[in-house]
Structure formats: structure tokens, C-alpha cells
Design a binder for these strands. Structure first.
Lengths: 119, 119
DNA sequence: GCTTGACCTGGAGCGCGCTCCAGGTGGCAG
DNA sequence: CTGCCACCTGGAGCGCGCTCCAGGTCAAGC
């Protein structure tokens, strides 16, 4: 039962809006989605899964251009450049950000401790 | 020797540009900076320290409006609203983000493992 | 006094990532 | 056939966070 969803349902499952789905497709983050004979999109399970990945990476702060590259590198199954290098670079970028957030959390913790005592 | 830095040095120490420093001041993330009789800014040690905090929270992804509120709440020494609540809310927001980044990192790790094996 | 360079202001411009809109088509229910 | 609603397209608009610019002032060095 490999489903094939109309746009509204794809939007619901992925948590993105119709506009965002179309935008991502235009920008090449999502491979061209199949169409019915009438020209309407039908999202395959694979599409939905891929959108999940993209959306997860997007939430982590990767930019559209990065994700386009991610998509094209992982989709062109072959002579793609240094995929592992590419992925590894982004991994460390994300770690850097996680560390920044940790620092910020400890700043907040300090303030919280201060005001918890005095308020 | 409490220093009082001209803009260029404040920029250098904080890692922000002159434009950004002025922008933050206009937006109220930084209290009004002292001026010389001639109208030029002089950043105090306190200013620089505060800018460090702001910049750290900014790097973690907090928005300008949040930081303005942060500034005004922590500066108005008194009848400020629920400071601890405010700080705690932002703390959990940051934790949510850190978690999203962790998720994304594990997605990347999976891909890295896959392509490390096949490339 | 003159030059020079750091600084000032207000406001325009920009890149990103959507988001919205107008005007039109597909296809099912009645 | 007629509504109607989901969907289509291309393009404009928007909020955010800067960034850049024009035109002017201050003050140190010559």
C-alpha cells in the first residue's frame, strides 16, 4: 500500500505548508514530484520521506542552498563529489552551533540562578 | 583601569561590525552608550560585557525582539515582570533547538556511515 | 588653517526563506 | 451542465537582521 498523497495530505504529514512544498520543489530540495494527467502533484512515500529529512535538516538551521546541494549530491547516485566530506563539514557546523546554544543556555542559567535568589 | 573604548575597538573586541553595534543600540539591545562632548561613542567595560552576552544569545538564535525584551527586563532593576519565567522559557526554547540539531546530526551520521561504506 | 581619518545620522538596499495573491484548470457531486 | 473546491502558475510582498551609502562633524597632525 505505497501511498501517493495529494498536496494537502503531504503538507499535513510533513508539517509544511503547500507553498513551502512548492517552494522546496522549485528550489530543487525535492526532486520533481509526479503529476496526475491533469497536472496535479502526487507525493510518493519516498517524496514524503525525503521531505522529512530535508525538513529536519532545515529545522537545524541548514540553508536552502546547502540543502539543494545535499539533495543533488545524494540523488545523483554516482560521480557526486566528496559526499562524505560535504556531510562531515555540515556535521561539524551543526556541532559548532550546538555548542553555541549550550553556551547561551549556561548564560541563561546564570541569570536564572541570580534572579531566582533575588526575586 | 576601566577602559572606555572608541567604536572601532569595541567592534574588534566583540567581533561585531560598527554598523551592527549602532543597529543594536538603536534597537535597544544595548543601553545608550556614553558620548564624548563631540558626540562620539565611548564603550565602557560594562557595555562591552553586555554586548558579549547579547552577541552570545544572538549566536544561539534568539531574535532581536527577544533580546530587546531581555535587555529591558534585566536592566530595569525592579518591577520587571516575570524575569525568571521569561528566562526559563527561552532556556527551554534553546534546548528544543539543541535537540533538533542533535537529530539532524544523527541524520547526517547515518548518511556519512552509508557513504563511507560505499564510496 | 588644512588635511585626514574615524566617527556621526537617517534612510535605502539586500539576501534569505518563505507567504500571499490573481487568474486559471481539473475533476467530482448533484 | 453547473458548482465547487483543491490545485496550478508566475510573480509580488514581507519580516528579519543586518549592511551600505551620502553627506556631514570632530579632532589630531602638519
Amino acid at each position: 500500500m505505497t501511498a501517493s498523497l495529494p498536496p494537502a495530505q503531504a503538507a499535513e504529514r510533513t508539517g509544511l505548508t503547500l507553498d513551502t512544498l512548492r517552494y522546496y520543489e522549485r528550489e530543487g530540495l525535492i526532486g520533481p514530484v509526479d503529476r496526475t494527467s491533469g497536472g496535479k502533484r502526487r507525493y510518493s512515500d519516498d517524496d514524503v520521506f525525503w521531505i522529512g529529512l530535508i525538513s529536519c535538516l532545515r529545522d537545524a538551521g541548514l540553508g536552502i542552498a546547502d540543502l539543494r546541494q545535499f539533495t543533488s549530491m545524494l540523488r545523483e547516485g554516482d560521480a557526486a563529489g566528496d559526499r562524505v566530506g560535504f556531510l562531515t563539514r555540515h556535521r561539524s557546523e551543526l556541532q559548532r552551533r550546538a555548542a553555541q546554544i549550550e553556551t547561551a543556555i549556561s548564560v541563561l542559567d546564570e541569570k536564572i540562578a541570580y534572579y531566582s535568589a533575588t526575586d
